[in-house]
Design a protein around this nucleic acid. Structure first.
Lengths: 336, 336
DNA sequence: GACCGCCTTGCATACGCTTGCAAAAAAAGC
DNA sequence: GCTTTTTTTGCAAGCGTATGCAAGGCGGTC
């Protein structure tokens, strides 16, 4: 029930309170003798500096606000864990805010976040409004968007090269001899969803083949299942490119439910390469987002902005690669 | 780049700083006139109270430390999201700490945590050492263990009634006519793993049937797969009760890999009922942990301890129920 | 109209720490 | 050994807010 303060340590060590502070402040000067006395006293009393008090005077809280949603999509827990570890290693910690779906509420959330004097904000799977942009900018809080882009040049962001990637996926399907290719797109309210769809269209137009179908799957399992059932009615596609793995699993389940075999009757390709994609029951061919590098980049970005007061927003697009598994036919078509 | 303070608002509104403070402090007295002036000035300036400064003087940070690991196991992201939402609704937020596997390091983590003056700690999927117990107790920081028990009566915890539940699962398998039942147990270093194994043994002994096999799956996918391959060699079990869903999925994959059909050749039952268990590709019979109620209970517990300074640790065990799906044979054996 | 009680308000202090400044101490230079 | 330079140290002033206390304002009662 006791809070040990630096003053108490100071008294016990026979030095001033500022001496104690300096011993616990990296880069401050203190003689070996003082350091020893203070450390001893601190250990005796079980003293630990109060991060909040430190934050008040220094203006640095060593807290990063993380806004996240869609934790059902395994991509985010994985990213969250990596982010947390990377930041912990640098002495920062994550204050987590789970975002509601509506975009307006995100703004409220960010206000909340800033009340905590966070040193930076990482927003994963979330778009931010422009008023909010100004707000954060105005407060001098760096913002990095993770796995989501932003047209306005307000923030930094790090994503995959979604459009290029989607083009590669589509070309892979075309090369595999598919000609009736459908796209269950990621949510069109998100940049990732739009970019991947654009990449899909790029590739189709380049080869001069019409999309079999193209619908918005909203990054939602139920919606993806409904879309798939629709597609399976009547003339079927021979391939479906799905906006992310989370939906792709739903597609696979639905295809099997219809008595068809993925990779044989219909090829399915996802996006993300979450761990589950490698599991035998799904065995999903998918485009691997380089989540490790994305996290690293995001952390580096936010650190740079915090430490250097860097203001120019960076837009990073990292390359991943297609991971071939059993859910999509590989060999060239028999027409060859 | 500007930090608006209550003093600035005060000046603009023509009142004292304390008046501003009172307007933003629920339960403090201020005349309607003052409230109006202050709110106006605050809105003009874009003032928001500094939570950290508030925390310093009040001693309440409105931050809950959450220690978590095993985010690959979908149970935890789900719980995390629910916890975060429940706490956000009460004006609290989560500072997240991802725990390494080793138990010692958890202690270091908690020290870190307490530096942030958290109002409480929720530890999910993590055991705590007794020195740590004292430490937190000494600092007056309430600790609640989530989905993990603790023999020492030091902290509160909330879990399922794991032993009873495991007994029910085992009885279900016995009733289904299975006689060669194996158990791939949860990590024996965890209370949940041990309790479920104990429940399994309870039921088997009560019916006087020998376990076909019993091994520690360590809550690890790879280990569970290895165990399963072992079990499938030679004389096979006709049922496997797995310590959690995360491992059960691995078991199912391995069974299929061996050319067998779960629910037909071998029954499999898991524990947790994570969302994925309901997906068609797994269709896993499993014991549903009442995660909503567990979260609610954990939050209530920690709130009570924070607000009332409650000290007596509570040990809550909630009941879930068995969810029947396709991975386990249901009907009585043919011997009937 | 005087008196009493209650609601508001400002003043001043405290929360636990960092940091600029100047004095003291130690080290270095000759 | 004395001056000059460098390092160490204590003092004190904040960081932005809440809150006890006393003074002021208001209405109500007789």
């Amino acid at each position: 029930m006791s809070k040990i303060t630096s003053a108490q340590v100071a008294k016990r060590a026979g030095v001033s309170q500022s001496a104690v502070s300096r011993v616990f402040t990296p880069g401050a000067s203190a003689s070996a003798k003082t350091v020893k006395k203070v450390r001893q006293a601190a250990a005796d009393l079980g003293y630990r500096p109060n991060v909040l008090a430190r934050a008040m005077v220094s203006g640095k809280s060593r807290i990063i606000g993380l806004v996240v949603a869609y934790l059902e999509n395994q991509f985010y827990p994985v990213a969250l864990e990596l982010l947390s570890n990377a930041l912990q290693a640098r002495g920062y910690h994550i204050l987590i805010f789970t975002a509601p779906n509506s975009a307006d509420d995100v703004d409220v959330l960010i206000e909340d976040l800033m009340d905590y004097q966070v040193d930076g904000i990482i927003a994963a799977s979330v778009s931010m409004s422009s008023p909010l942009a100004e707000r954060a900018q105005h407060s001098g809080v760096p913002v990095v968007l993770f796995n989501r882009g932003q047209e306005s040049g307000a923030f930094s962001h790090v994503t995959s090269a979604n459009r290029t990637a989607a083009r590669a996926v589509t070309e892979f399907l075309l090369d595999g001899g598919h000609s009736r290719i459908a796209h269950i797109a990621g949510w069109q309210g998100s940049s990732t969803g739009r970019d991947r769809q654009a990449g899909f269209l790029d590739a189709m137009q380049a080869r001069d083949v019409q999309p079999f179908a193209m619908v918005d799957g909203m990054y939602d399992r139920a919606v993806a299942m409904a879309c798939t059932r629709q597609l399976l009615n009547g003339a079927r596609p021979d391939a479906i490119f799905v906006g992310n793995d989370h939906m792709a699993f739903a597609v696979l389940d639905t295809i099997r439910e219809a008595g068809l075999t993925p990779g044989q009757d219909i090829s399915v390709v996802g996006f993300d390469d979450v761990p589950m994609a490698a599991w035998a029951s799904y065995d999903l061919t998918t485009y691997r987002q380089p989540v490790n590098r994305m996290v690293e980049a995001a952390v580096n970005l936010i650190m740079a902005q915090i430490e250097a007061g860097e203001v120019s927003p960076q837009k990073l697009e990292l390359d991943g690669r297609l991971i071939l598994r059993g859910s999509a036919r590989i060999e060239k078509a028999e027409t060859k």
